[in-house]
Every structure is written in C-alpha cells, then in structure tokens.
Design a protein around this nucleic acid. Structure first.
Length: 214
DNA sequence: GTCCTGGCTA
DNA sequence: TAGCCGGGAC
C-alpha cells in the first residue's frame, strides 16, 4: 500500500485500460504480449478499419487476414492464432457471449482462460481485471523487477507466488488494482528499467541502504 | 543494438 | 532452461 500511495501521489490516475469495448480490451491484452502498446494501437486501428474487430470476424476470416492486420504488434502469426483461439473458446464455451463469460466466477473463468492456447497467467489476469473488473493483481516483469531490486522477494518465485503475496497485502479493490498495475508499468518504463535509474524515483526512499540489488 | 503491459515448445 | 516469435521506436 505504501508503494501504491507513493506512485499514485506522484503520477495520479493512469486511465487504463484504453479500450472501447470488452472485446477490444481482450484483443489488446493478447496483442500487447511482449510488445509496446503504441504498436498495439496501430494493430487495433487496422482491425477496426478492416471490420475485423468482432467475434464473428475473428471466427470467420482466415488467420492470414488477421495476421496481416495486426502486423505492427509483432509476432503476428502467433497472435493471429491466439485471437482465433480465444474467439473459438468464447463461442464454444459461452455461446459467443462475453456477458455470459463474465458472469462466471473469477476462479472458474481464470482456469478456463488459462486453458486457451496463448493466454498465460498475466494475460488472463489482465482480462479479468480490465475487461471483467475483477479484483485481481496482475503480475508482470516490472513488478518482479521492482520487488527484487528492493529486496522484497528472492526472485525465484512463481507467478502465482507473487500474485498471492501481493493480493494478500492489498485490498480487493478493482480501482486500486487497476491503477497499481498501470503505475508499476510506468515505473518500469521510467525508473526501474533494465539499468536502474533510482535518482528521482518515487520509491527511492524504499531502497535498501546499498542501493538496488540487481 | 536494445527494448517492448508473454507464452509455448523442445 | 533456452530458443523462438517480430515489427516499430529509440
């Protein structure tokens, strides 16, 4: 909570997730895997312009057509496959209804999302939090790096370990978890980069005496 | 050349 | 655990 307060006091609300619809948020969550968001926006713009941003289109258009549209997001062949995998999952499991999907319980839906090829824990949790408004903490590479550099974890924890650790330390508040993940991403892009830039960091006073650990 | 709101496979 | 996917921005 101290981390959240410091980050929020410094940068304020981050206005995530910038998607128009729940489907668009889910598509964005898949497209942004290991990819800069600016490139995802280009891909989503292409999908919209080509009328591919619908469940029906994702189900019916050939994978190669989807791939061409999302090319700016990188990994376009893999991601085209993943978008179609999610679309067929939604059709098969919930009759194509996002409303039915999001009326499922969080643990049940999470388990089912993880069974979709191309949806791992971070993508599943992003979907739950940002499209489903469920109080879920999203762990990402920045989260791990920030915690490791401050000596709060050993570094060999699994995704589920870190998620449990953070959930436990935080209230189950959708808005807070929404902002916190976005703020941690901002922190990772500005200060907690591959090479740390601690001077001026909102968390500078939380550093161990000898500085960052890695 | 490095990095980007990961996940799958061998 | 390493290698792979990959274009775009810097």
């Amino acid at each position: 909570m101290e981390v959240f307060r410091k980050l929020f006091q410094t940068w304020g609300p981050q206005h995530w997730w910038p998607g128009r619809t729940r489907l668009e948020i889910i598509v964005g969550a898949i497209l942004t895997q290991n990819t800069n968001w600016a490139n995802v926006e280009k891909a989503i713009t292409n999908l919209r312009r080509k009328r591919l941003l619908s469940l029906h289109a994702l189900l019916t258009f050939p994978e190669s057509t989807i791939a061409q549209a999302i090319r700016p997001a990188g990994y376009y062949n893999q991601k085209a496959k993943r978008l179609k995998a999610f679309a067929s999952f939604l059709e098969r499991t919930y009759g194509g209804s996002l409303r039915r999907m999001f009326s499922d319980t969080t643990p049940q839906l999470r388990q089912r999302l993880l069974s979709v090829p191309g949806i791992g824990p971070e993508t599943a949790d992003s979907i739950l939090l940002y499209a489903g408004r469920r109080p879920v903490f999203v762990v990402d590479a920045y989260t791990r790096r920030v915690m490791q550099r401050h000596g709060w974890i050993r570094g060999n924890e699994t995704y589920e370990d870190l998620a449990a650790l953070c959930q436990q330390a935080l209230p189950a508040d959708v808005q807070l978890l929404n902002e916190l993940h976005a703020l941690l991403v901002r922190l990772g892009k500005t200060h907690c980069r591959t090479r740390p830039r601690c001077p001026g960091c909102p968390l500078e006073k939380l550093l161990p005496p000898d500085g960052p650990l890695m």
